[in-house]
């Protein structure tokens, strides 16, 4: 009857027309047909990615177990490259330099950036101008940025020494002595990255809910306590993310070394990437270059995991 038909009523029109097998078959064909549409969208990127990123990563790992230069015949040698790399004093120096550089550079640039960001947050008049000016060094390619610094730190005609000498000083050898050279590189990299991190932290600080800060003010919290107790904790997730990004970026230090010191003096500014580059393209010692490349990959991966783990632990403790 027209009146009320409840679920699953055994009416003739409600009989299935396909057997379960037919149904499955046609469903499969239908899904295959719709899936095929993705191919055209995926193919261009996936092809480039597979050939020029995924494959090289895999090949690099494989080649780290082989000898033979760029042109020579390759031969599987097991862990020979790895043991060689482990004992290589040059690599050890490069790793140490890179580590020292990273610790100092990240500490300095983060400290300065958070400080300047909080200044900009409090004193908003003209903050647009300051932001732009601080951001400026990022515009120049690292190579050119480092070149500008040549004119600042060159022993003979660098602006810094010219000023020193005008006040009767002797002039400092910024690039030709250790550890000056590495510290100069740190300064140049801090100079370049500062604007980015200022903007980054400024955005973070300004994302702190205004009511929280206002509540702090009414409670009579001093500005510094307010910063330490309210602003910094809310920045924490940002801080970790920033740290990971900074580690990954800074572990690749190469451009300014190539321009300013070429790894010298006496390997005082030799970095991991600089070492890879030299071994690969100057000495054609590909085995060592590949082993070091894979090592760098692993270290970056480990750094990322480690800092995420640290955050999770700290959050668990606070909860």
């Amino acid at each position: 009857m027209e009146g009320s038909v409840a679920a699953g009523a055994a009416e003739e029109w409600a009989e299935l027309t396909l057997s379960p097998r037919q149904y499955r078959q046609r469903a499969r064909r239908y899904r295959a047909r719709t899936s095929r549409r993705a191919i055209g969208f995926l193919a261009p990127y996936t092809a480039i990615w597979a050939v020029f990123l995924a494959f090289p990563v895999g090949w690099g790992v494989w080649l780290s177990f082989n000898t033979g230069g760029i042109l020579g015949t390759r031969q599987f040698v097991g862990f020979e490259n790895w043991t060689r790399a482990w004992g290589d004093t040059e690599i050890r120096t490069a790793v140490r330099n890179t580590a020292v550089y990273m610790v100092i550079a990240i500490a300095v640039v983060f400290g300065l950036a958070i400080f300047l960001a909080s200044l900009l947050n409090k004193h908003r008049r003209g903050s647009n101008f300051f932001k732009l000016a601080l951001y400026f060094p990022l515009l120049a390619p690292p190579i050119l940025g480092a070149m500008m610094w040549f004119f600042m730190v060159h022993f003979d005609f660098g602006v810094l020494n010219l000023i020193l000498r005008q006040f009767g000083g002797a002039g400092i050898n910024y690039l030709g002595e250790n550890p000056n050279a590495l510290l100069t590189i740190v300064a140049v990299e801090v100079w370049r990255g500062l604007g980015f991190w200022v903007l980054f932290y400024l955005a973070g600080i300004q994302a702190v809910p205004e009511e929280l800060l206002a509540a702090g003010r009414i409670d009579g919290a001093k500005a510094w306590r307010r910063f330490a107790r309210i602003t910094v904790p809310t920045l924490r997730p940002l801080l970790l993310f920033a740290l990971v990004v900074a580690i990954i970026f800074n572990a690749q230090l190469f451009d300014s070394v190539q321009v300013l010191t070429e790894g010298g003096p006496a390997l005082g500014t030799a970095t991991v990437v600089w070492f890879i580059f030299k071994r690969m393209f100057a000495f054609q010692d590909t085995g060592l270059a590949f082993a070091t490349s894979v090592g760098l990959l692993l270290v970056i991966l480990a750094a990322t995991l480690l800092s995420f783990w640290a955050l999770a632990k700290r959050q668990a403790r606070e909860a």
Binding site: V5, A7, E11, A14, E15, L16, T17
Partner: peptide, 23 residues
């Protein structure tokens, strides 16, 4: 429009359970 014993599951939940309906 005819629905015959129509069923839709999302994972463990059944959103539509054996619905037959003729419009």
């Amino acid at each position: 429009v005819i629905l015959r014993q129509l069923t839709k599951r999302f994972g463990a939940t059944t959103a539509v359970d054996d619905v037959s309906l003729r419009i």
